[in-house]
Simulated scan of single mutants.
Amino acid sequence: MTQQLTAVVTGASSGIGAATARALAGAGYHVFCAARRAERIEALAAEIGGTAVVTDVTSQQSVEDLAAVVGERLDVLVNNAGGAFGLAPVAQADTDDWRRMYDVNVIGLMQVTRALLPALVASGAGAIVNVGSTAGRIAYEGGAGYTAAKHGTKVVTETLRLELWDQPVRVMEIAPGMVRTEEFSLVRFEGDQARAEAVYEGVAEPLVAEDIADAITWMVTRPAHVNVDSLVIKPRAQAAQHKVYRG
Rank of each mutant, 00 (worst) to 15 (best):
A139D: 12
H30Q: 13
N130W: 08
E163D: 10
N227W: 08
L160T: 00
V155T: 08
Q3C: 12
V9T: 03
A46Q: 07
A38H: 03
Y140C: 08
A213W: 02
V155D: 02
A148Q: 06
N79K: 13
V54A: 04
V131Q: 01
G82H: 10
P89S: 13
A18E: 09
A215F: 09
Y29T: 01
F85C: 05
G145C: 10
I216A: 04
T2M: 15
E201F: 09
Q238V: 09
L186R: 12
T58E: 04
A209D: 09
P89R: 14
G191V: 08
F85P: 03
N79T: 13
G145S: 14
L186W: 05
A149Q: 03
D211H: 14
F85H: 10
V76S: 01
A119D: 06
N105M: 07
W165A: 15
P206N: 11
T2W: 10
E173K: 11
T221A: 05
R180C: 13
R114T: 07
T58P: 07
T134V: 15
G191K: 13
E201V: 11
E210Q: 13
G15R: 02
A196V: 05
S123L: 10
A23R: 08
V169W: 08
M1W: 12
A144W: 05
L207Q: 09
G28I: 05
V228C: 10
T181V: 09
A209N: 05
